[in-house]
Design a protein around this nucleic acid. Structure first.
Lengths: 254, 254
DNA sequence: CCACCATCCATTGTGTACAATCGCGGTGTT
DNA sequence: AACACCGCGATTGTACACAATGGATGGTGG
């Protein structure tokens, strides 16, 4: 029925994100990407067997990948009831944003101190890719690249614990955006990213932090987190109870 | 041969730390605790089969537990070569402490805002336990409880991402202390913890943060991180290469 | 005598079979 | 007709068997 991907079996290394190449990395990266690009909606059930068939690997691998995703907070692992794409509550979203503000501030300061010319060039490249994606209309890739920009920035900060924490926060943020966006505007406006890089390259820590904080403001000002939760927010409110919500998003279907 | 623990099999819930009771949680908690109490030295190899025999479970469970520990940075998972207790380099230690300063500051501020009377009481209880452990001479339990104090504080901050990050940082800190301590003094002096609680209870954020920052200063002033690495620090310097280092620490054995 | 190479062994990586658990639908009773 | 109980199906949890990898060791050639 649902054999959507060719089994990919022992694809030597052709995958996109899995650099280490071990199978569970590949699976992890694909699911991760799918969630970040909103091809998997919050609440979607992630059956081990189905995923195993899709990727052509056994449940063992799938299980590890899901476990990792659960650690990062993008997947919810309910004992004996399977895994679902996480659907963060408003409160959880607030907590993530609070933590992110904190981390982004520190990362920015550190990046100003430690970023190499090469890393700055890579950052610029990512902003270009991001802009391209949005102008191409590929909103999903845009969101993902926008997140990856912040991750790259974390790498420039040269602090391993912060990088891994940032990874978790960025993924959850993408999920939150997917769930709560007002829908009217594009997300991380990439000129903000560009300005940020400029400030970092100029080693202007104070300006960079200011820009980053404003950037954070812009991000969550685009969300519906505050108070108002009527009509279709009902889904969000009770989404942690749902389990069979299908990818199709518009609630007015049939 | 080395059946040290009774298989514990389906022990209903009698364990100490594993509240959720699923077997891998129990195993995870035990190894975690052993590392934090320095019953497992950095660099010790963690054989899946041996652990499985000890805990009376299959390698599947052990593997999951190790995976979790690796995510938190206290275990190093080398592909095809097994797991070892992490032995953080000086640079890694610095990164952990930097991140911790950051997080502890935020946690302190948040705890001042959100800590309930009940939580404050629990914190006081933990300090008591900690003092008892040290005065009883149980240094391992003291270190662990000291770490758990900081974790409890994170819970009072009511921010899930910060809690999980703090968990990772605290465990790594314990490992670092185990590896680099000067050995002369007790670790988290518990009166600092008491003063901190007082400030939090008084809702004096500024004072609380100051105390916490000084507390952090004291912690890493007790370590040998800075420059000096002679004689027995040789172990630490090359520990990331070692793999068969047995728990017994004094190198003058047989 | 030393260095290089092939083989062996120990340990991990993966797949699969079986057992346990939960949700769901049927059936009987009140 | 509505509620409660029971059995069934599906999915996850666990263990085990086999495959693959890497290190160690012994042998051989220079």
């Amino acid at each position: 029925m649902n054999e959507q991907l060719q089994p990919l079996k022992k694809q030597p290394r052709a995958g996109k994100a899995g650099r280490s190449g071990t199978q569970d990395d590949i699976v992890y990266a694909h699911i991760f990407e799918a969630i970040l690009e909103q091809r998997l909606a919050p609440g979607t059930k992630l059956s081990e067997e189905a995923l195993g068939e899709i990727f052509g690997v056994s449940r063992t691998i799938i299980r590890r990948a899901l476990s990792r995703l659960a650690h990062e907070g993008v997947v919810l692992l309910r004992p004996n009831r399977g895994a679902v794409v996480a659907s963060p509550s408003v409160e959880e979203a607030r907590q993530v944003f609070l933590a992110r503000r904190l981390v982004e501030r520190a990362i920015t300061e550190l990046a100003v101190q430690h970023a190499t010319a090469e890393q700055i060039a890579e950052l610029r490249q990512m902003v270009n890719d991001e802009r391209d994606s949005f102008s191409r209309g590929d909103r999903g890739a845009g969101i993902r690249l926008s997140g990856e920009f912040h991750l790259k920035l974390a790498e420039a900060a040269k602090n391993a614990p912060l990088i891994s924490f940032q990874r978790s926060l960025v993924s959850q943020t993408s999920l939150i955006i997917a769930q709560y966006e007002s829908g009217n505007r594009s997300h991380c406006s990439y000129d903000e990213h560009t300005q940020l890089i400029d400030a970092i390259e100029a080693r202007n820590g104070e300006l960079a932090v200011d820009l980053m904080m404003h950037h954070m403001d812009h991000i969550d000002s685009k969300l519906n987190l505050d108070e108002e939760s009527a009509s279709d927010d009902l889904h969000a409110v009770f989404s942690h109870l749902l389990q069979t919500k299908k990818p199709g998003r518009s609630s007015a279907k049939i």
